[in-house]
Design a protein around this nucleic acid. Sequence first.
RNA 1: GCAGGGAUAGCCAAGUCAGGUCAACGGCGCAGCGUUCAGGGCGCUGUCUCGUAGGAGUUCGCAGGUUCGAAUCCUGCUCCCUGCACCA
Length: 881
Amino acid sequence: MQRQDTYDHAAIESKWQERWADADVYRTSDDATDPSYVLAMFPYPSGDLHMGHVRNYTITDAYARYQRLQGEDVLHPMGWDSFGLPAENAAIEREINPREWTMDCIDTMKTQMQSMGFGYDWNREITTCEPDYYRWNQWLFKRFYEEGLAERKGGEVNWCPSCETVLADEQVEGEAELCWRCGTPVESRTLDQWFLTITDYADELLDGIDELDEWPDSVRGMQRNWIGRQEGTTVEFEVPEFGGIEVFTTRLDTIYGATFFALAPGHELTQELIADDPELATQVETLDPDADGDEKRGVFTGEYAINPATGEEIPVYVADFVLSDVGTGALMGVPGHDQRDHEFATEYDIDIEQVVAPADGEVEIDEEAYTGDGVLVDSGEYDGIESAAARDRLVADLDTAANHTQYRLRDWLISRQRYWGTPIPVVHCDECGPVMVPDEELPVELPEFVPTPTGNPLEEVDSFVETECPECGGPAERETDTMDTFMDSSWYFLRFTSPDSEDVPFDTERANDWMPVDEYVGGIEHAIMHLLYSRFVTRAIGDMELLDVREPFEHYLPQGMVQLDGTAMSSSKGNVVSPVEIMDEYGADTARLFVMGAARPSKDFDWTERGVRSSNEFIERLLGMVEAFAADETTTTDAGERPIDEYVAREIDATIDEASAGYENFRFNDALREARGLVSLLRRYREQATPDEHTFERGLHTAVRLFAPVTPHVTEECWTALGEDGFVAAADWPEAAHDADHEAERQLVANTREDVRHILDVANIEEPAAIEVVVAPEWKHRALDVAIASDEDVVGSVMADEELRERGEAAADYAKDLAERHQSLTEALTPAAEFAALERATWLFEREFDAEIRLERASDAPDDVARTATPGRPAIEIHEG
RNA sequence: GCAGGGAUAGCCAAGUCAGGUCAACGGCGCAGCGUUCAGGGCGCUGUCUCGUAGGAGUUCGCAGGUUCGAAUCCUGCUCCCUGCACCA
């Protein structure tokens, strides 16, 4: 099992990479008008490229290249999402600073990207950890603040009491929630932090989802879910001596069945109650809001709330299933009509009352809650009213009730108590409170990194912290929180339009022309947060009148995973295939071809050595065939009219159509299959006959360009070998010359070959001497047309035609046949087209069956043979030797 | 529980939106033949059942329905995946 010598991919690939760079092939001019904006999610620079990157970036690169070949201006930029916790951790581990580590990683990844042949406009490279990028985070933060979209309020953080530091969610490990560094159980603390009030845009972001018809349904569903809009009612329950406590409910119609009242452990009233009652406090301590829902536990407070509908007193519990951040943190318990309340009531022996009856049928309310709508019962004056109507009337009748829309979406907490991020441009002054840093003092730059065992390194840098108040000039302290890195990535696609702008984050006019991103490709893990924040920021910027576009991404494609034996590659499982090694062994083109050919972009697929090898061998054969042709391998110039030449010419056109459609619809695997088919056809052409020079050359020129988006290096090599001067990357996409019904012709040939095989098999003919193929007579085509056109009486219509009537019995028989299949009749090729298509394909029959092929018109064939021919189905007579 | 997606021949997987040319593209695996051929590569073919002339039968998760006609449309059910979830 020896491997054949393969082509010198290393030399070819680096040669063309240099030439592209020298010629600035992938540069997008600022003057471009509405270029096709193709964007892959920019990576976090973690060191080496992995297969996920390779797939992601090959998809956008191939599409961008295809667009360029189509003559479009293309914007295909790349950058680095380079702030974030891993750099800080790596820095501490390696005793270097995060910046150095990050820049090293960027260098490595950039080199690897260039080795992969990705055609980016590196003039537009963005690095978010550079002051010239993050100053605009600060600038935007200030605009948000001015618009009332940034506010400071209490937020929960993870706190390690031993390290005395705040932890990010990913630094809290396991179910037990232990600090990643010292293993101490993590606590929760409330700190004053900065929020962007994305909830102000909740309705708009939700409604906008309807317009995103080029996004996958799954992602749209996830976003809807995340926003979680819910229409309901707020209403107060009076707790004597403590006042009205507000609850939120979507089922106000069940209020007569509210037999208990429940508070979250963190609710204000709970706090008030336990402050005066140490025993209650101890009991509440035992409740665990994080416990999963199997068992509902609660503590009776001794207080009673008054049901505003019934006027009855109901017991007030503190219960672990009531969450502080859902609704108002308090709820009315309706055991009869809510399964969760039902379980709680059963556990604590609380009354279960039915106040809604289903329209039909009975329910056993003691066994299970009835959660559907219905007709009210035992609800005083509301008896007999439908649920929906009852809700409306109760809102109107109850003093404290009001319609209210609730969201699951929370405001976006952007404060991070970390070093490696954008400093929030705020100064805290004892006199003036939090004050924004003036624009002219931006950027607030990060100081040198000082590793600290505890807390936020920024707090330890006195020269950073100590400053004066921009308002009063008095001593003040800088904000030491930095921004969530999602801030960086929520507008970077705008910055790509004018990455060097020094006075504005982006050029409004150009962004209006170039946005939205036409094709956005990246991992599904960003389906919610990154995309939602980007949508929010884009809208907010729009409302600052800096942009006219409201949705940043027109088409979003989450690419599938590259797996090994059905499992996702991951370094923790140790089942990764290194792109660098693949590039070394097989070259970038092979990796790209395999990844793109294996499956459509949205599907997962398995990495296989076999597939890689076969991609590599294919590339080698393509190059070999082109080089053999270039070396003046025998072709002829005085053919060109033979059926076989025509056949190949037509197939070239058919392939162009199919492959173009594949690229257009992101079905690269289909496009590549077609293109490979063409190469295989050219090989057989060369085997069968001395190829016509023009046809063969056009075939090669076409094939090379069809592969150019996916295997850019080797196709440049081919292009040059074919005598072309420029880059194939800048060539024109091939155009189909004939405007024919390729589909029908291909079908006819395939069916006829299939039929011959079938007959040979069934009739057990080993070595046919001659195969007679007879196309249907003109009049049968005519009869078919008449039959298709006729509404009812097919036989009548056909026989009404004078010319057909002359055919007598034969016409009548065929008419009956047509009548039977009347509904499913479809138009056939014309007799001439049918004959020509088969004539062109004769060589395939000869090649396969090794027999003489006699293609005839019905008029030239014996009647008993011609008889069975119908449009689209020639008669076949096989003669044995 | 809610939301979204899915179930196709040995395996992977198209087709479903716009019903008929669908026994159902393609790939893998397996088998045969060819190639002055090393069992490799390449080319060709076969791979639901029956059939000595292109035919017939039974198939596209299960059960019904609509239609002249359903893998495709509708209803119900079962199972799988993904996201969210003690969400009031």
